[in-house]
Amino acid sequence: MISRICFAAALALSGAMLSVPAAAQQSISLAADEAYVHPHSEITVPPSLGGLQRTRINEYAENALDLGMNFASADNGQVLSVYIFRNTNGSLPLWFAQAESVIAMHPNFDEPDVSIAPRSFALPGSDTASGLLAVFEPGAGSPMRSTGVAMFAVGDWYVKLRASSVMRTSDGLLHWMESALAELQLPAHEAVAATPIADCENELRFRGRSRDVRGDAADNVVNSLLGGLLQGLVAERQAEAGPVAWCRDSQLEIGQAVYRANESENSYLLALGDNGNAVHVAPQLRVEGISPDSENDEAFSLTLHRAAEDVMLVSQDRLPSPRRVIDLLDNNRITSSRNTWGDDRTVTVRSGELGK
């Protein structure tokens, strides 16, 4: 859901939520005493949480693929937010690390100190430490005394709880978050143990500036179609290979960070924001007898994962730097897209605006 991402500059944030253009948000209206039931995961969020009344529910991608709801006191001195978004890439530890970094770099929290280091926790009724949490103490320039984040997965859905308080200590905020988590009604699901992500041993290095892969218009169309059609096959092979150990490579701007699977030297994931949007950069797949002939056998594909679709960017002749990827996004260098939600899995050759 690209509308929650600002590619021209660092991500803009407001309060405890990523800034979203008003036109991109859809408000969900419920009676004040009506619980929200997520239609896909069956997660139920009560109308009040942690002693606070729900103030709004916003949908950031159609079909409830990415949404958030706020619970706040009248003076906004106590705020809880619950987010539910689709798992399309990466891992729980990776997206928890993104949520952490957004807090750590958020100007409203004035360079906060980590008061309760990232750690695993078990949801009520479970013996498996499948969730991750951390609590921060904001700097003197922040109105908040404490702020924190917790995340866990329910099937193919990530659930994130954000909490901020002008009066609670870090320990008090932790207990408040635990109480709020216990109020969520979760369907039966497999709990998978999670641990905080680690930094990569060494950062990736890039050999010069990458350029668009040369080819005529017809070649670009074929590569775009293949790129979209093969994404499903790639996902299946990754699932068959077993769990991936992600490490954090480097931080760009707020909400923009690079992660690598199994310390890969020729691929990475550029996370954009903290709600599941990311660009996967990897060697381009080629199909003998179908892929256009190329002088460059080391072309790289760039796939933007969004809530309901994958968007392919123009291939590069070498491993592109994250800054180069951002530049391609800024300039809408799109070649094709593939639906990843619903029955229609159409691959569309396209160019121009990314859209909402």
Rank of each mutant, 00 (worst) to 15 (best):
L186C: 10
P187N: 01
P187K: 00
P187E: 05
E190G: 04
E190I: 08
V192F: 09
V192I: 12
A193N: 05
A193Y: 05
A194S: 07
T195K: 10
P196E: 09
P196K: 07
P196Y: 08
A198E: 15
A198T: 10
D199E: 15
D199G: 14
D199R: 15
C200Y: 08
C200S: 08
C200A: 07
E201H: 08
E201R: 12
E201K: 13
N202Y: 09
N202I: 09
L204P: 10
R205W: 10
R207Q: 14
R207A: 13
G208Y: 09
G208D: 11
R209Y: 03
R209T: 03
S210P: 00
S210M: 01
S210C: 00
S210V: 00
R211T: 05
R211A: 11
D212K: 14
D212I: 13
D212V: 12
D212Q: 14
D212W: 11
D212N: 14
R214I: 08
G215N: 01
G215S: 01
G215I: 00
D216M: 06
D216R: 08
A217M: 11
A217T: 13
A218V: 10
D219H: 14
D219C: 11
N220H: 05
V221T: 15
V222Y: 06
N223L: 13
N223D: 13
N223T: 08
N223F: 03
S224L: 02
L225H: 04
L225M: 04
L225S: 03
L226K: 03
G227V: 05
G227K: 04
G228V: 03
G228M: 03
L229I: 15
L229R: 14
L229H: 13
L229G: 09
L230N: 06
Q231H: 06
Q231N: 07
Q231C: 03
G232S: 04
G232M: 04
V234W: 09
V234Q: 13
V234C: 03
V234A: 13
A235G: 06
A235F: 01
A235M: 07
E236Q: 09
E236L: 02
E236V: 00
E236R: 00
R237D: 07
Q238E: 12
Q238Y: 02
Q238H: 08
A239K: 03
E240Y: 10
E240K: 07
E240T: 04
E240R: 08
E240H: 08
